[in-house]
Design a protein around this nucleic acid. Structure first.
Lengths: 202, 202
DNA sequence: ACCTGAACACCGTTCAAGT
DNA sequence: ACCTGAACACCGTTCAAGT
């Protein structure tokens, strides 16, 4: 975990792990079937979000937004973890606890278990995806923003008119903006889903 | 590209590429700075979605949903591509064309360029994320569904009551369900955003 | 039972030498 | 200018041999 945080995912080799732990590579295979199993265990441990709970007086949507932002910040502080996320590594104890928590929230809000599960998954997908797909990027860095602006501006205005025309604005949209717009849209959508369910049930 | 589709991302080595192309590894470095540059070019080419356009009489939300589903299916047919996606590889010509298209849609629907950009990004994030995070999984496979059901059922009911209680339902929720619920929620949220903007502008 | 050293078959990248 | 062969410093994994 220390190795992953300090030197990144690419440095997470069996040799380096063994060295950090003070043993040889070969002995690692005594405790773990292969590297993948080790990664699964590591990712799950890293997903144990700071267990601080949202303010109790908040409604379900505020709680969901609060937890989503907390989860995102946690992942951004541990970029190595985000880069290891695939499909299969999300069934460890900590991931399951997170699932229980979000099901509680969405079922409590009035969704059926099936819809609550799909809503929770798609919210998790959005959070993980937004961190993952912005890994190498820092769009709040003015240097990168300038680079983007020039890239957009220099496109062919006949083929990509909106990119050229709005180059300045587009270059300034940060991953925070993207996250907040997407998060609010998702929660608005879930709210509408709940209202529809209420109407359907009488 | 053929290599990636037939033998997967892990087989995409400089040696294998060279062999497929009928030259030596070293000569690849004549045409490309390093492996990363090659991946960037490859990913962008792979992102050139089947250029079929959505039905013209559809409104912006139907068009967006149509394109989103098309994009997702395209990615799922080329799983190797999805596993290569990071932040930095989405500025090739095809990615930019996709950006132009979605900006057109969202600005046309009434969003400001800034909000349109954030909406388009978050939608893309959701699509890419949902494919990426379901890569190794096939939740419509009855065998995997059974495995999930047993996993949920065998948890501690005191700690994870909802997982245990709704094990059967949860195990049946597919990645299609997740995608549709998330996609509809996002579009509903964007629609609300547009209405708010309309109200604000008079 | 657990650990070690050494090996195996890979990987991306470089570079002097060819044509 | 372009390509080659050979090497370099890595990688995950295995296994006989030690204690």
């Amino acid at each position: 975990m220390a190795l992953l945080d300090t030197r990144g995912a690419t440095a997470l080799t069996m040799r380096n792990i063994a060295e950090t732990l003070g043993c040889t590579q070969a002995s690692l295979y005594r405790h773990v079937r292969n590297r993948e199993e080790l990664v699964t265990l590591l990712v799950d441990r890293a997903l144990s979000v700071a267990s601080s709970v949202p303010p109790d007086e908040a409604d379900w949507a505020e709680k969901a937004a609060w937890s989503a932002r907390l989860f995102r910040e946690h992942l951004r502080r541990h970029p190595g973890v985000a880069s290891l996320l695939r499909g299969t590594e999300r069934l460890g104890p900590n991931s399951l606890a997170g699932m229980q928590y979000s099901l509680e929230l969405f079922i409590g809000a009035g969704l059926s278990p099936r819809l609550a599960s799909a809503a929770a998954s798609s919210l998790a997908t959005f959070i993980l995806g937004s961190v993952h797909l912005n890994l190498g990027l820092d769009r709040s860095d003015p240097e990168e923003s300038r680079h983007l602006r020039l890239l957009y501006r220099s496109r062919d205005p006949a083929a990509l008119p909106l990119l050229v025309q709005h180059a300045d604005t587009l270059a300034e949209v940060t991953s925070d903006d993207e996250f907040e717009v997407g998060l609010n849209a998702l929660l608005t959508g879930f709210r509408a889903l709940i209202q529809n369910a209420d109407v359907a049930h009488g």
